[in-house]
Structure formats: structure tokens, C-alpha cells
Design a protein around this nucleic acid. Structure first.
Length: 468
RNA sequence: GGCGCCGUAGCCAAGUGGUAAGGCAGGAGUCUGCAAAACUCUGAUCGGCGGUUCGAAUCCGCCCGGCGCCUCCA
């Protein structure tokens, strides 16, 4: 069990070794809750859900923290627009996020810290930073981090201060000693939510909350710190700077893991640009698992394109996997491994699956192993091989898919109100077929098909399913 | 201007030195009353030009094209 992970810090794949044996402490940056989340957020959460599931599959105990940034300018502005408090807006958005991620089969994080619940820790951190000369308070203004005091500033994003200053900059706060200095504590304006602090009423800057949450909930150094690649700079860079300034030589995190951006029409999906598909829209079209399949289909570090064509293609691919385990009843699965070539195929698939996942979570290759196993199962069934072997292999396929968070289940027909009526129509059609009334039988099938009900005839009779 | 990523069959997408996984679509066939599903067969020399090497999609250089970050951002 040797897992390799690409570490943004070094830019290369590294052997994964946890600080504490068998235990992984993972912190993943969650959304700023000011508006409905889009599928780019879903993708990021899903990527780390998959990583977590695989680590757990490999026997690690994973402590997974995912934060909510629940106070910032955008939340305040949006709440004002809506005429509700920023607390209320954040609460609503968080509830929605929890419900939606659940429907996306994303395992709940172990802890969900929020910026507003870390104020004491945050203030404590800032005090330390000021004491040690890493930060300064400008009276009547904000508290800033003094970037020049951290000699390795830019080590994560691989850039240096001089290059960045050379870049075009706008709106530099004139209170700053250095344009790259960033806010730790933001003084409150009128009517803004605020907390008392040694520097007057205000609220935390964006980056400090993560440093505080990690320190308080996970300890000084964590194993994995994750998030979207757009967070590398400045957010994660600044987190490192703050935390390591007072971390007594410890690194903030061992492995920095970043997922690629989701693209729509060739451009990064983002709230501010307005080119987005919301998670709600995705779920409304029944695309939760299809989307997960799409995420699995490209490497987590690469950008992923979302579009009608890629969606349809993924949907068909997913249906193929679902088809391979169709009709599986776990109660019919033999306990013992059958001695049959299908069992060999299942073993081989598992080995390839693990090798792929060990290699920086190469999900496209892991999926390929599942597809090959699906083919073996289908072939064996076509050749009429005994069900015990097939059941056993199907169960193995379903188990591996589950490691990726794929359920591979069709919607329960019984849960449909219309199920009894569809059953009746299928039964009648069967009688028509037996009476060689094919024209009528086909008509029934066509009409049902138009309603999204797919009928498949076989030697054992007809079965139907909803076309998702 | 700086940093980084990417360009592989019609589409999506793995693959970092030894002659290209997988999926979708397409074509032919098997099965079927027909259809669907499934199965079998079927396709690329890897953006371009040079270089290193016995050998490169994989390493180096240049060029072309696309994207991300450098401001809030998963």
C-alpha cells in the first residue's frame, strides 16, 4: 500500500506518509456561502470525497474538515440586497450545501468549522503575529500581515515578491507597508457584522480563518490540505505564511492537493463571471451520479469541461456500468470466492484499480479497470455461465465502484407511483406478443419509451427501467 | 510582463524512454418477431519544426494554439 500524491508544494509525486500512522488529517477549503453553489464547487468537494473514500478503503482513519467562510464582503452585500441578515443568508446557504452534497453522495466531513465560530482563535493568532513582528495594526484601519517578514513567501505558488510587484496592480490600500501585505483583521464599517477585538470592532480577513481552524481542530501540522487550484495564490500561500510564522518550524501541511477547474464553454466556471450551472440544476436533471462519473473520467488535477455532449457521453458510460450489475441481489452473492475465470477477472480488476488509485488517484484508469470487469461479467452471462460466479463478480464490481462513490443503482421502481401501472402495461404487452400482435405490442413500447420508460425483452421475459 | 498547466482517434480521456488504456459516437456481424441491452470484429504514431537517444507521445529548444493564477474565487 504505497500511495503517491502530487504535492503542489514540490510539484512532483511523493510517497504518501502520514504524520501519525494509519491516520489522515485532511482540511479542504469549502465555499464562501453567499450564493447558490455551482457544480465547480461540487466537483472540488467530490474530488476530495473520492480521495477520502480511497484512503479509508486503504484502512486509514480520515479526519476530514471542511470549512465554511460565513462572513465576508460578498455575504454582507448579498444579504443587504435580500434584506436579510448575513447570518441568515449564511445559514440558508450552508443548509442547502449540506442537503445537496448529501444528494451527490459526498460523505459528510468529520467537522465543519465556520469562520464566525473561530473568532477567539483567530484573535489569538493575530495577537501572536503582531507580537512577533509578523503583523502590524494601522490605527483606524486594518491589521495586516507583513509579507516581507516571511522569507519563503511564494513557496507554494512558486513566485516571488519582486515578480508580483512588477505585475499590474490596482486598488492598493495605502495603509499597507507593502502592496502584497494582506488583511488579517478588517475594521468594521457601519452596520456590518463585527466582533470586538484589541484593534476595535471588525471581522477576520479571509485567510486567517483557515489557519485558525486547522490549529484548533486538527493541530499544528496536517497531512493533506486541499482545495481548488484557484486557491493556491493568494489564499493558501497566505495561510502558509501566517501559520508557519508561529508554528515553530512546523509546516502547515505535508501534502498540498489541488483540483483543476471546471470549465463551461471553454472558460472557468465562476460565480462572478456568471457562467455556471448550479448544483440544483444538476440535481434537477437527475445528474448527480452522472456528474460524479464525469469527475472520475478525468484526472482531478486537470481542468474538466462540462457540456451537453460530455454529459450525455458520461451518462451512457455510467449506464453501461449500471447494466453490468443490474439485477444483483446481495443476498444471492456466494460468500466464498468461486474458482472461475470470472473471479480471476475480478481480482485482476481490483489489482489494476488499486494500482491506478495508488498512483495519485488516477480515477480514469481505475474506471477502465471497472469497464473491463463489466465486459467480463456481461460476456460470461451471455455465454450462460452460472449465476453464482456472475453474482460474485458483480458484487466485486459494485464494491469497487462504491470506493469511488458510485452506487450503480437504478432508481427503485417501487418508489415510483406509476410503477403498478407500468407493470400492468408491460404485462398486457407481453400477452400481445404471445398472441403475435406485434404491431400493438410495439406501439405500447414506443409510447412508454416516449415517456421515459425503457423496455427490454429477453428470454426470461420483459423488464423495464426509467431512462434517467 | 511573471508563474504554471494543456494540445493524444469524430468527441471525452489515460499514458514521462521501448513501437498508444478505457468511455461515447460510427461501421460490420451474432442474438431478437422487431427493437433495446449484451457480445464479437473494426479506428490514432500522439499541435508543428528541429535536437538528444539504439529507440520518444514521453527528454531538450523554438514556434503555433488554448486555459489558469498574479484582485474575490472550489
Amino acid at each position: 500500500m504505497t500511495i503517491q500524491i502530487t504535492n503542489t508544494m514540490t510539484g512532483r509525486k511523493e510517497l504518501f506518509e502520514t504524520i501519525e500512522p494509519g491516520k489522515v488529517r485532511m482540511y479542504v477549503c469549502g465555499p464562501t456561502v453567499y450564493a447558490e453553489a455551482h457544480i465547480g464547487h461540487a466537483m472540488s468537494a467530490m474530488v476530495f470525497d473520492i480521495i477520502r473514500r480511497y484512503l479509508e478503503y486503504q484502512g486509514y482513519q480520515v479526519i476530514h474538515a471542511q470549512n465554511f467562510t460565513d462572513v465576508d464582503d460578498k455575504i454582507i452585500n448579498r444579504a443587504n440586497e435580500l434584506g436579510i441578515s448575513s447570518e441568515q443568508l449564511a445559514e440558508d446557504m450552508i443548509n442547502e450545501w449540506m442537503a445537496q452534497t448529501a444528494r451527490l453522495n459526498i460523505k459528510p466531513a468529520t467537522i465543519y468549522p465556520r469562520a464566525t465560530q473561530e473568532i477567539d482563535t483567530i484573535i489569538g493568532l493575530i495577537e501572536k503575529l503582531i507580537e512577533s513582528g509578523h503583523a502590524y495594526h494601522v490605527p483606524g484601519s486594518d491589521v495586516f500581515y507583513r509579507v516581507s517578514r516571511f522569507e519563503n513567501y511564494g513557496k507554494l505558488s512558486h513566485r516571488n515578491l519582486d515578480d508580483m510587484i512588477a505585475g499590474s496592480r490596482v486598488d492598493v490600500d495605502e495603509h499597507k507597508e507593502n502592496p502584497m501585505d494582506f488583511v488579517l483583521w478588517k475594521a468594521a464599517k457601519e452596520d456590518e457584522p463585527s466582533w470586538d477585538s484589541p484593534w476595535g470592532p471588525g471581522r477576520p480577513g479571509w485567510h486567517i480563518e483557515c489557519s485558525a481552524m486547522i490549529q484548533r481542530h486538527l493541530g499544528g501540522e496536517i497531512d493533506i490540505h486541499g482545495g481548488g487550484s484557484d486557491l493556491i495564490f493568494p489564499h493558501h500561500e497566505n495561510e502558509i505564511t501566517q501559520s508557519e510564522s508561529i508554528n515553530c518550524g512546523h509546516n502547515l501541511a505535508r501534502y498540498w492537493v489541488h483540483n483543476g477547474m471546471l470549465e463551461l464553454r471553454g472558460e472557468k466556471m465562476s460565480k462572478s463571471e456568471g457562467n455556471l450551472v448550479t448544483i440544483r440544476e444538476l440535481l434537477d436533471m437527475g445528474g448527480g451520479e452522472v456528474f460524479r462519473f464525469m469527475v472520475l473520467g478525468s484526472h482531478y488535477r486537470s481542468p474538466m469541461a462540462f457540456g451537453d455532449d460530455t454529459y450525455e457521453s458520461a451518462k451512457r458510460g455510467l449506464e453501461r456500468l449500471i447494466g453490468a450489475v443490474r439485477g444483483l441481489d446481495r443476498r444471492e452473492v456466494p460468500d466464498a470466492r468461486p474458482s472461475h475465470e470470472l473471479a480471476d477477472a475480478a481480482d485482476e480488476a481490483r489489482q489494476r484499480f488499486e494500482a491506478a488509485m495508488n498512483d495519485d488517484f488516477n480515477t480514469p484508469v481505475a474506471l477502465a479497470a471497472l469497464f473491463d470487469l463489466a465486459r467480463s461479467i456481461n460476456r460470461a452471462q451471455d455465454e450462460g455461465h452460472g449465476t453464482p460466479e456472475a453474482r460474485w463478480a458483480q458484487a466485486r464490481l459494485q464494491d469497487l465502484a462504491a470506493v469511488l462513490g458510485l452506487k450503480l443503482q437504478e432508481p427503485e421502481p417501487e418508489s415510483l407511483d406509476s410503477a403498478p401501472f407500468i407493470d400492468l402495461l408491460v404485462e398486457v404487452r407481453q400477452q400481445l406478443r404471445e398472441a403475435k400482435q406485434f404491431e400493438l405490442a410495439d406501439q405500447v413500447r414506443d409510447r412508454l419509451s416516449a415517456l421515459g420508460v425503457v423496455i427490454e425483452d429477453s428470454a426470461e421475459g420483459s423488464r423495464w427501467r426509467m431512462d434517467r
